[in-house]
Design a protein around this nucleic acid. Structure first.
Lengths: 218, 218
DNA sequence: GCAAAAGTGTTTTCAATACACCCATGG
DNA sequence: CCATGGGTGTATTGAAAACACTTTTGC
C-alpha cells in the first residue's frame, strides 16, 4: 500500500467588474487538455504549507498583488487526473477591480482571462465541477460584509452593489428597499462624490464603513 | 525538491446528549503524546478518496454506524507533526444520540470517550487547535435546519433544543419567544407524545418536519 | 424635451421582543 | 402542597415589503 501522494493547489480568483462577477482562468498550452481552460495552481512541495504555496501562485506565477485568500474544499477523486493520482486543495481569492487594473499590463504574455461566472468556457480535468462549487460557495459567502468590502473598494454605487446581490443570490430586490436596508445597516457610508459620465442621473458613491464590525447583510 | 506527501484524515464527531454538545476523542496509548487525547483518523493511501478513507475510520476503526460527514479544513503547517511532514484533511461528523447508544457496547475495548465541548482534555499534536476550529465551525453551521435534524432525531423537547442553541451561539433566549419562533417557522412538528419521568411538567415531544426544505433557523 | 438611470417618502404588514401567569408532575 | 420545569397569551416595537413620484444627466 502506497501512502505517498501528490498534492496540488488550485485557486478561483474572483472580481467584480461593473456589477458582473468574473473569475480568472488560465489557457492551457500543452497536452493534456491543450486549448482548454484551467484554474491556476501548482504542485505542493514538502517544504511549504498549502497557504504559502497558493500565495506563490498568485504573486509569482500570476503576477497579481497579494489578495484575500480563503481555503475551500479538497478534491481527491481517483480519476480527476488520468495520468496520476493528485489531490487538489482549492482556494478562493477575492480582489477588487481597482487594485487589479494597476497591474494588468505587466503580464500580457501569460494566457489569462476573466470570465463572467455565467459563461464559463470549456474546462480541463475536473475543473468545471470545482468552478461550479467555488461559485456556489461564493454565493453563500456574499452576504458577509467583509467579503463585500474586499470586492467593492471605495467609490461604488448602490445600484452596482445591488446588481451583484441579485446575480449571486438569484433574487430581485426593490431598488428603494435595497437602498434603505443597506444604508440603515450602517455597513456603508457616503464618500460625498458622485459617479458622472454615464447615462442618466449620476449615482452617489459609497464605501464600506471601517468602523462597523463584520456581519451579515440580509 | 520533493513533491510526495503524507496525507491523513481526522474527524471530529459530535453528538448532543441531554442538551450538551459532545465530541468523540481517542486516548493515545503509544508515544509520542502517550496519554494525550487525539482526533480519530488514518493515513490516506493512493487507492482511496479522502471521503472513502474517513468513512472507513468511522465504520471499521471506530465501529460506529454510517453518519453525516462533511469535509472541513486541510491543515499543512510544517511542524504539526514533529517526526515527518503530514497534511491533515479534517472532517466533521454528526450523529444523534439514539442511533449511537445502540452500538455503544460493541467496542468497549477501544479507548474512546465523549467530552463536553467546554471541557476538552489535553490534546496531542495540533489537535487542540483543530478541535477549536471544528467547534467554531459547528457553531456557524448550527442554524442550518438540516444539521439540527441530524443531531435531534424524533422525540426531542423544545427546551432541549434551546439549550443547544444557547450553548453554541452563546446567547440567552426567552423561553416563550424561542418556542414561538421555532414553532411558527414550520421546521418542527409535534409527535403528540410527551416526555415523562423527569422533574416538573412533562415536555411535549417534537421532530423535524421532513416536508420542510432546508433553511436557516434564526 | 425625452429617455435613462438615480434618488426620495409613506403605508402596511409581519415577525421579534418584552413581559406575567397558569399547568402538570415528583417528592 | 410546594418546588421544578413546561406551556400559553398579549401588547409593543422595529424592520421588511409594497408601492408612485421626482431629480439629474446625455443626447
Amino acid at each position: 500500500m502506497n501512502y505517498e501522494q501528490l498534492v496540488e493547489t488550485l485557486i478561483g480568483i474572483f472580481t467584480v467588474d461593473k456589477g458582473v462577477v468574473k473569475i480568472l482562468l488560465m489557457h492551457k498550452k500543452d497536452e493534456p487538455y491543450k486549448g482548454y481552460w484551467i484554474l491556476p495552481g501548482e504542485l505542493l512541495n514538502d517544504k511549504e504549507t498549502l497557504e504559502d504555496n497558493i500565495t506563490d501562485v498568485v504573486c509569482d506565477k500570476l503576477g497579481l498583488p497579494t489578495m484575500y485568500i480563503e481555503q475551500f474544499h479538497s478534491f481527491s477523486n481517483l480519476n480527476r487526473n488520468h495520468e496520476k493520482r493528485v489531490i487538489a486543495t482549492t482556494f478562493i481569492g477575492l480582489i477588487n477591480n481597482i487594485t487589479l487594473i494597476l497591474r494588468k499590463q505587466e503580464r500580457e504574455n501569460l494566457e489569462l482571462a476573466w470570465f463572467d461566472i455565467n459563461s464559463i468556457p470549456k474546462m480541463g480535468y475536473d475543473h468545471d465541477k470545482i468552478v461550479e462549487k467555488l461559485i456556489n460557495y461564493l454565493k453563500k459567502r456574499i452576504i458577509d460584509s467583509n467579503i463585500l468590502k474586499i470586492l467593492f473598494p471605495s467609490d461604488f454605487t448602490i445600484p452596482e452593489l445591488q446588481k451583484v446581490y441579485e446575480q449571486l443570490l438569484d433574487i430581485q430586490i426593490d431598488r428603494r428597499n435595497f437602498r434603505k436596508r443597506i444604508l440603515n445597516s450602517g455597513y456603508i457610508v457616503s464618500t460625498g462624490d458622485v459617479n458622472e459620465g454615464n447615462m442618466g442621473r449620476p449615482a452617489k458613491l459609497y464605501r464600506f464603513n471601517d468602523n462597523k464590525e463584520e456581519g451579515n447583510i440580509f
